[in-house]
C-alpha cells in the first residue's frame, strides 16, 4: 500500500513550488496547476511504471503526455521532484535561456517531456500515436494523457477520440481535468459542453469517474480501476473532478487564477496555507 501521507506531503510541496514559480516571473497558470497537484503526484509516484532516467522513446515504460500545456508549473515541479532534473532548475521557469519554457517543449531537451503542448487539442492524437507504436513494438506498457475540460472545445480532440475507439486503442488512459473553468469563465458559460461522460461513451470509450480528484486515495483507487479496464478493446477515459486553485483558499472555485500570478502578499497567504514539507527549491 502506498504511503498516502508521503504523497500528501509531496503534494503540499508541489503547491509551494507552483506558487513560487509563477510569482517569481509574474506569469503562468497557477489555477489548473494547483487543481491537478494530487493527480500528478499520484501518477508519477504510484501509478506509472517508469524508468528512473529519461529516454525519448520510452520503450518498456509507461508514458505520459500533457495536452493542456499551460499547467506546466505542476508538471515541472513533479518531474523535478521525481528525479528527472534538478529541483533548483525550477528557479528558471519562464526565464530566458531556460529549459522550463512557459509551455512544455522538447526543444531545449528537458527530461520528462516528449512533445510540445500549449496550443490546445493536440495531445490526444500524439498520445494515441505513441500508444499505436507501443502496440507495434509489442510493448505492454500504457500511455497516460491529461487534458483540460475547456480544451475539449478544440475539434481535433474528437478526431482522436473517434479514431481511438474505432481502432481499439486500449492501451491508453486519458484523463480529463473536469474543473469546470476556462480563461473567460465557467465552461458552462463560455461554451457549455453538456455531458462529457455521455460524449466519451457515445464515442466508444470506457469511462471512469473520480468524483474527488483532489483526494489522493480516490485518485489511486480510480486510476487502478482505469488500469484494470485497459487491454479490453476499448480506450479508457477518466473524468477527474478537481477544484481549480485547490489548496489556496482565495484561488479556489474561480477562473480568476487561470492565468494570473499572485502578488507578494497573496503569495505569502498561499504559502502559509501550505507549510513547507520537503524543502523549497
Amino acid at each position: 500500500m502506498p504511503n498516502t501521507q508521503q504523497l500528501q506531503d509531496l503534494t503540499t510541496q508541489v503547491r509551494r513550488d507552483i506558487l513560487r514559480m509563477v510569482h517569481k516571473v509574474n506569469s503562468g497558470h497557477p489555477g489548473g496547476s494547483l487543481g491537478c497537484a494530487e493527480f500528478f503526484v499520484s501518477l508519477y509516484q504510484e501509478i506509472m511504471e517508469r524508468n528512473d532516467s529519461f529516454d525519448m522513446d520510452g520503450i518498456g515504460e509507461d508514458l505520459f503526455f500533457l495536452s493542456n500545456g499551460h499547467i506546466s508549473p505542476v508538471f515541472y515541479s513533479v518531474l523535478a521532484r521525481s528525479g528527472y532534473f534538478p529541483v533548483d532548475e525550477l528557479n528558471t521557469f519562464r526565464l530566458i535561456d531556460s529549459r522550463l519554457q512557459g509551455h512544455p517543449t522538447t526543444h531545449e531537451g528537458l527530461p520528462g517531456v516528449r512533445v510540445a503542448s500549449g496550443s490546445l487539442g493536440q495531445g490526444f492524437s500524439v498520445a494515441l500515436g505513441a500508444a499505436e507504436t507501443k502496440k507495434l513494438n509489442n510493448d505492454n506498457h500504457l500511455v497516460y494523457s491529461l487534458h483540460g475540460d475547456g480544451e475539449l472545445q478544440e475539434g481535433q480532440n474528437w478526431e482522436g477520440i473517434m479514431y481511438a475507439a474505432a481502432n481499439n486503442v486500449d492501451n491508453i488512459i486519458s484523463t480529463i481535468d473536469l474543473n469546470g473553468q476556462q480563461i473567460d469563465g465557467a465552461t458552462d458559460d463560455v461554451l457549455p459542453m453538456g455531458s462529457v461522460r455521455a460524449k466519451f461513451e457515445a464515442f466508444g470509450w470506457t469511462v471512469v469517474d473520480i468524483e474527488n480528484g483532489n483526494d489522493i486515495d480516490a485518485i489511486l483507487k480510480g486510476m487502478a480501476e482505469a488500469k484494470s479496464l485497459t487491454g479490453k478493446g476499448k480506450p479508457v477515459c477518466v473524468l477527474l473532478k478537481t477544484v481549480m486553485g485547490n489548496g489556496v483558499d482565495f484561488m479556489m472555485h474561480t477562473h480568476a487564477w487561470h492565468g494570473k500570478a499572485p502578488n507578494d502578499e497573496q503569495l505569502a497567504i498561499g504559502l502559509s496555507q501550505n507549510t513547507e514539507t520537503l524543502g523549497d527549491y
Partner: peptide
C-alpha cells in the same frame, strides 16, 4: 498502415506520437 479517415489534424498528431518508440 493506418487509415485515419477524413481527419488530417489527428493524422499529423498520430504521426508525431508514433515517432516516440522509433517509428
Amino acid at each position: 498502415f493506418f487509415q485515419v479517415g477524413i481527419a488530417e489534424a489527428n493524422m499529423i498528431g498520430l504521426a508525431a506520437g508514433m515517432t516516440i518508440g522509433g517509428k
